[in-house]
């Protein structure tokens, strides 16, 4: 009986810490949200250095030592090296018109992934690396690539790899279009959906670091900076949409379409919340 009391006490204490980004707030204030958000995770994981949050559930002080050492040994001879090399080759292969992907990006697409996603204030749409790659293809008369895996994931992973270690640098949302995308992404993150009635935040914020069956749930801080990721389960690289769809399906919520407004807004919100963390993509995942 005593142990049970003290367990509920621990649960209660961790609830008290919730400084969260409140949904009810009248005036959107991303900068203030970001501060509260970081503070929450720093308090929740006092033994995790800030930069380690890029490693998801394999960060020091979050995953079990056994899981972390397995992950480290996978990262030593990463099974995704081949896919990244393939992505580089595709990236550098000229289109039939002689142009390359480099022509569509600032700095030729090298070392810029940390600045994505951003909002195009003319269209009001969130631009991710993946949408930019496919827009580039269409601009040059080619068909867009499928969103979830294959060539697109490989090219995107290569582009992220050229930003390895650079700090995520999403501009603070301030224009009406940016604030709208931010608020929509945030709302999706905190809203319960589906038959199991769960929100992303339910697991990745309030129960991060705890175990769902044998899996340690990664914190929202750093949730997106390892993507595209290589999952043993997939045997290949997958984009962030592929993972979003997986979590939606696991909780019996109808997934959104890949690179839909909803998923791009969600990705925008989550990436802004990871500002300052070093890009570390791709990474190995079980």
């Amino acid at each position: 009986m005593k142990t049970i009391r003290s367990i509920s006490a621990v649960v209660a204490t961790s609830l008290m810490l919730i400084p969260m980004v409140s949904l009810a707030g009248s005036q959107p204030n991303p900068e203030q949200d970001l501060k509260a958000f970081r503070q929450y995770f720093e308090q929740r994981f006092p033994n995790t250095p800030f930069k380690d949050f890029s490693n998801g559930s394999f960060a020091k002080g979050i995953g079990s030592p056994g899981a972390i050492s397995q992950w480290q040994s996978m990262e030593e001879f990463p099974p995704y090296d081949f896919a990244v090399a393939k992505g580089k080759k595709l990236f550098n292969t000229p289109f039939p018109n002689g142009k390359t992907y480099a022509s569509c990006f600032p700095h030729g697409g090298i070392g810029i992934a940390q600045n994505y996603p951003y909002v195009n204030n003319k269209t009001g749409q969130v631009v991710t690396i993946e949408t930019a790659i496919n827009a580039c293809r269409e601009k040059n008369g080619l068909k867009p690539l499928p969103w979830l895996k294959g060539d697109l994931a490989d090219i995107s992973a290569y582009m992220f790899s050229t930003s390895d270690g650079k700090a995520v640098n999403v501009k603070t949302p301030s224009t009406p279009a940016e604030l709208k995308a931010y608020e929509t992404g945030k709302k999706i993150f905190y809203t319960r959906r589906g038959k199991l009635d769960m929100s992303c935040a339910g697991c990745h914020t309030y129960h991060s670091g705890q175990r769902l069956r044998a899996q340690t749930i990664s914190p929202t801080l750093g949730l997106v900076v390892s993507f595209p990721a290589y999952r043993a389960k997939w045997g290949a690289l997958g984009t962030i949409d592929r993972r979003f769809i997986g979590c939606n399906k696991n909780t019996q919520a109808k997934p959104f379409k890949p690179q839909s407004t909803e998923y791009r807004d969600l990705q925008y919100f989550l990436t802004y919340m990871s500002n300052g963390l070093p890009i570390n993509a791709p990474q190995w995942r079980p």
Binding site: V11, S14, L15, I18, M20, Y190, K195, L196, D197, M198, S199, A201, G202, C203, Y206, H207
Partner: peptide, 20 residues
């Protein structure tokens, strides 16, 4: 369970209400 534990941290599915 949401009727007993209404906070945002309660992720226990409503097994009866949602016909699980």
């Amino acid at each position: 369970s949401h009727k007993y534990f209404p906070g945002p941290a309660n992720i226990m599915p409503p097994f009866g209400r949602n016909h699980i």
